[in-house]
Structure formats: C-alpha cells, structure tokens
Design a protein around this nucleic acid. Structure first.
Lengths: 185, 185
DNA sequence: GTCTATATCAAGATAGAC
DNA sequence: GTCTATCTTGATATAGAC
C-alpha cells in the first residue's frame, strides 16, 4: 500500500535535514543524503526523482513547520492580518533556532536548486497579502515586514554579523510598528 | 611588465559579466566564460586560479561601481551619514538597472561560490556603520535601510514579484524615514 | 514495487607540452 | 603564458536483482 512510501519519504527528508543543518547546505549532495538515510543513491533517486525535487520537499516541510508554529500563536477566529503579522514576528523572536534553521534550508535551495523556490514564493505571497500598501499605515507595516525579512536574509546569507541583542531590537521595533503599544507574549 | 596581466583580467571579467547578465548566473560555467573571452579553460584558470576567485573579482568590480555611483551623488566634504544613506537609496531609485545588475552578481556568487562573499560583507559593514542603533532616530533609519535591502534581496532571489511602482514606493518611504521632507534629486 | 549497481555526462581542477 | 589532456566529483539514466 501507499503507507510504506510515505515512511521512506520522511526518513529521507530527515536525512536531508540533517545534512543541511550540519553543513549549512554547502555539502548537500545526493551521496551524503543517501549515506545518512542508509540507502543507496539509486534508492534515493527512486523516491525523489531529482535533487531539485528533494530540496523542494525539504524546504516545503520546513516552511510548513514555521507556519504551524505561527498558527499556534493565533487563537481561532482571531486571524486578523495584524495578529498574524505579530505572530510571525513573535515566532522569529523565540529563543529556539527556528530562523537559523529556515535560513539553512533557504540557502541550500538557493545554492543547489535555484529554480525550486515555489514553496518560499507562496510563503512570501501570503505574507505580503497581510497589509495594504495603499494606506499610510499599510506602508509603515510593509516597511517593518521588509526590515524583518531583510535582516533574516542578510544574516542567512552571511552578509552581516548581527549580535542577538540587535537582532531582537529590530524585531521589537517592527512589532511596535505593526501594532503600537503591544507587548510580545 | 604587469600591464599585460591587468588587461587580460579585465577582458575575462568582461566575459564573466556578460555570462552573468545573460543568464542571471544560472549558466555561469568556466567553459562559458572562457568561450566568451575567446580563450581556453586552461588559460582562464591560469589568470583566475579558481572559479571562486573569478566570482569574487567580478562581484568586487560590480560593487565598486555601485559605490562609485553613490559617491558621485555626494558633494565633497558633505559626507554626513544621512547624506550617504540618501545617496544609496537614490542610486537604487535610478531608472537604469544598477540594482538588477547587482542582484545578478550577488546571486551568481551565492549559487556558484557561497564562500566568496567578502566584498559584499565589506559593503554591508560600511552601510550599517551609517546609523546609530542606540538612538530612536537611528533605529528608524536602520529599519528603513533593512527594508530597502530586504526588498532588494527578496526580488533578487525571485521570492517576491514586486511591480516597479511598489518598488519605488518602498524606496521613497525609506527616504522619508532617513531624512523627512527631503525630495530625491 | 523498491532498491542496487553501473554507466554516462557535465564541470572544476591539475599536470605537463609547447 | 597559454593550451591540451586527464582526473575527479557529483547528478542523472538505465538495467536488472529481489
């Protein structure tokens, strides 16, 4: 039945994730993933026809995790745009390494499969739908969101080296732009 | 003498640039650059020992061009930080394709030589030195700068598809944060 | 139906001829 | 200083074992 297949997919994605997180994506090869998963390269390719497909699936799973974490911060029926944006920023503010993880996945996709960005594009499309650039308030929020993503990408690409304190200061500043006077939960 | 070598370097960098701009960096191979430069792969490798070194040199030259364009916007002895930031944003606002070009170079470096980011790191280090994150005004400016870079990177990576009008709206909004009431030249 | 083993091909690096 | 030939790695295609 189809069960078996799913289990293998997850096992392979776990291996892919381990390789990505271990090297920041620089040593992401099919050989490395197959070895980590305990199967041959051919067996890997049987499940994921191409490296691109493997990377897209790994990125998709990681972004779904982030979205799930954001959703958990939002009470049912209270999915107003600003609440969702706050939840996004708050998730980025967590102590755990959600964003560092995500950056490693994004960079891997970029380096090894530059055309496999569909999951990330959907993610940003949804994020950008949460404010209205035709109002002054909406433009302020857009600037705050772009600043958060800008810092995320600059750090992920290794282009800036920002201490954690400053990183948080940017997120809190954005938070205050999105919903003044509010406090992180 | 050393003259000859420099001429060859420039001819090769011109070829590299042509390949980068033609494909957005996806087809950036030593074979393609050598063919475009009219030399063999071996001859190319003699001048730039590794692909990484070639990419670093190409990125370096392009970023130096951008900096020179920014510098031209600043009158002598008027190099205050906010003037420099305005010049940076204004250069990004130009009709010509300075930022699209730069994005192609950055993406090529990222995809083909993820460790060859030194020129870009210096660039951002200088940019981030232009505001003081310990003041409220400085934090506002930092947010504006990060938003500009965030949009630049999101576009460059192909993660968002922003119409030109909105692109300019973000830059003008940032401009107003950096120096309220000022108008682009 | 799932995997192994092998073949092929592209691309970066290296050695050595000229 | 430049080129040819060769080596190596890694992605992908194919044949066939179980």
């Amino acid at each position: 039945m189809a069960r078996r297949k799913e289990i293998d997919r997850d096992r392979i994605l776990d291996a892919a994730e381990a390789v990505i997180l271990a090297s920041g994506g620089r040593q992401f090869t099919l050989d490395a993933v197959a070895e980590r998963a305990g199967i041959s390269k051919g067996g890997l390719v049987y499940t994921f026809a191409t490296k691109d497909a493997l990377i897209a699936a790994a990125l998709e799973r990681e972004m779904a995790r982030f979205q799930a974490a954001v959703d958990e911060r939002i009470e049912e029926d209270e999915a107003a745009p600003d609440r969702r944006l706050l939840a996004h920023v708050d998730e980025a503010l967590t102590e755990d390494d959600a964003l560092t993880r995500m950056a490693a996945f994004l960079m891997t996709a970029l380096v090894h499969a530059p055309d496999m960005f569909a999951p990330a594009r959907r993610f940003y499309h949804a994020l950008f739908a949460l404010f209205d650039p035709d109002t002054e308030q909406g433009r302020d929020v857009r600037q705050a969101v772009l600043a958060v993503e800008g810092l995320f990408l600059l750090r992920g690409l290794g282009l800036v080296d920002v201490p954690v304190e400053e990183w948080k200061s940017v997120l809190l500043h954005a938070r205050n732009t999105i919903l003044p006077e509010s406090r992180p939960e």
